[in-house]
Design a protein around this nucleic acid. Structure first.
Lengths: 347, 347
DNA sequence: CTGAAAGCGCTTACAG
DNA sequence: CTGAAAGCGCTTACAG
């Protein structure tokens, strides 16, 4: 009977032990660098490990030790560069800490999110980092998770008693709004996003606070809701101009919306940064190369990913500590799209 | 002694069996839907599973059954939207097939790639999908992998006897070049990328073939190498114009390079799509919103991800089949950046 | 239809 | 310094 290369049996501790005339226990000690074993024995074992191409079966070891070396990362939209950067940061920091990342993506579907998490739980992750799909029901999530597996929620608040890593949405939107006020704008819209999302509400709160500080009453027609995508934003552009006097600037929910609005403005014969001022939120790479380049709020998603990984690892270390909310900083990234006054002068 | 919620002991088959006054074997049969067990028994067990919040430990089952339900996905650059989309497609298709994705990212470092793969192998993946870091040494990779774990290589050829999923680089670059020729260009550069990368060589081959078919001899100064990043491309822009007559158009290695070149042109007082024609490769989302929008070669990275997942799953099914190379289609996505003639007329 | 026993690849007390 | 035995949570023949 011929054995194809790909089906060769696995080399185990027992094989090494037998070849070295030792017990599996001793080989196991070598593997984990125990100082107990004699230097000669160690050398003999290590040579044999290499010779036979042994690869450690961490799953078997974890089973015996009742530990896990995996963390699940559930992302709502990996095709969004913001979350892709976040995921890269998470994976980087987890790998450095000796953990492997179990990836799951939900495509913003709560049903898929339930299924994905259920499946990941069967692989016994030590913890979960979740960037929740829009419309996530915390109680359904809680009954799925139980209380054995700690979770860190990123970006969208879910309440319950999970750890939470947030962007400073209020402050970021306030910075954007204050910048437009400083350019002389008085009629400033808040454009895009859905108010049932906590991040959208927080950003709008920051916008409102800045206007209130400037003594400006927010007009209802300055609040335009739409799905946070480029396409929907482009479609909703007209809603800004149905009444006179129309806004001269818009604080957008995020960069995707801002880029869509810029496209929508162009198709109506207006130009962002020329006769209308626009700001975004996220600072995705496209923001720097759009026409004109987009003034936005930078939140460094890769650093947020590393931070999320560190927070969940900390939680594994101290399961009993009370759940904590962490607010990550945001800062204004100035570019041409907002460098224009209400009269069309370039600042 | 109080037990904190997070440290509650795991519910196992044995707990369920004991509560139902059955053997673990019977509960195991229920879990996997065996028709052998009596309907009443099944109902009783399922109620108890739910009551105790049992979660299946797939790792333990896999250990016993000597199977794996994980596939490792190693990505060189997750912050590149092209690879992020690819990863999303892989994860989607693997999840549908009941596999979990073990993520690893290398940041284009061959050293990190070795370390990441070594670590992932300890988690016993059934197979590996690798988007190799630049400069990967196939023989080092082979000695790391052994012959037990099948691998699918994406995007960059590594030789050896691994399965390989490629983009149709030759045809894509040919399409881009033929398009520029049709606009009337005769002096066309091939800009960016390193010739030690197989994808770069293939794209340049397609470019050369198109020029040869048009009876044009390629000039040495039309070949500008640089790292495939926006920044390096912007820095190298001047190299296009050191000799007269200078090229009037450039086929770029990829979109990042093309966007960098467009920025470099702008800073030299030239404008892509106005007095110089540019094409990219990949069709990343930024290509549609750049100024001007970038003509490029679309390869549908998400579909490529799904395809990669299907190929590796197929390989798991039939380990003995000969290694196969698969070429995925590429098509021209026409936009403004190339719609200009050598004389500056807009086509 | 259900159970007792062995075993997947590892680690952990406990002896010696 | 090294080994024999038990056990992590599951599944798989084999009995009955």
């Amino acid at each position: 009977m011929t054995t194809t290369p790909a089906s060769r049996a696995r080399v185990t501790l027992a094989d090494i032990a037998q070849a070295c005339d030792l017990s599996r226990a001793t080989v196991s000690l070598v593997l984990r660098g125990s100082p107990l074993v004699h230097a000669d024995t160690r050398a003999k074992v290590e040579a044999e490990l290499k010779r036979q191409g042994y690869v450690y079966h961490r799953g078997a070891a974890n089973l015996r030790r009742k530990v896990s070396s995996a963390v699940a990362l559930v992302i709502n939209d990996l095709s969004n560069p913001f979350f892709a950067e976040f995921a890269a940061g998470v994976d980087e920091a987890l790998a450095d800490a000796g953990y492997v990342t179990l990836l799951g993506s939900t495509g913003e579907s709560v049903e898929r999110q339930q299924a994905v998490i259920a499946s990941l739980l069967e692989h016994d992750p030590a913890g979960i980092i979740l960037s929740p799909a829009e419309g996530t029901d915390p109680s359904r999530l809680r009954s799925l998770l139980g209380t054995r597996t700690p979770m860190l929620v990123f970006n969208r608040e879910l309440g319950s008693d999970w750890d939470y890593l947030a962007l400073d949405n209020v402050r970021g939107a306030r910075l954007a709004t204050e910048h437009l006020l400083a350019q002389g704008h008085r009629r400033i819209a808040f454009f895009g996003g859905h108010l049932d999302s906590s991040s959208c509400r927080q950003r709008r709160d920051g916008y409102r606070a800045a206007l209130a500080d400037a003594g400006i009453a927010v007009q209802a027609q300055w609040q335009i809701e739409c799905a946070p995508t480029r396409l929907e934003a482009a479609r909703q552009t007209g809603a800004l101009f149905v009444r006179d006097p129309a806004p001269t600037a818009a604080v957008c929910y995020n960069d995707a919306v801002a880029l869509g609005l810029m496209a929508g403005l162009a198709s109506r014969g207006r130009r962002a940064g020329h006769d209308f001022a626009v700001t975004g939120f996220d600072d995705i790479p496209e923001a720097a190369v759009s026409a004109p380049p987009l003034t936005t709020i930078a939140v460094d998603p890769r650093a947020r990913g590393r931070q999320a990984a560190e927070l969940i690892l900390q939680r594994l270390h101290d399961p009993a500590a009370p759940a904590a909310a962490t607010i990550a900083p945001a800062h204004l990234q100035l570019r041409a799209s907002s460098q224009v006054t209400p009269n069309g002068d370039t600042a």
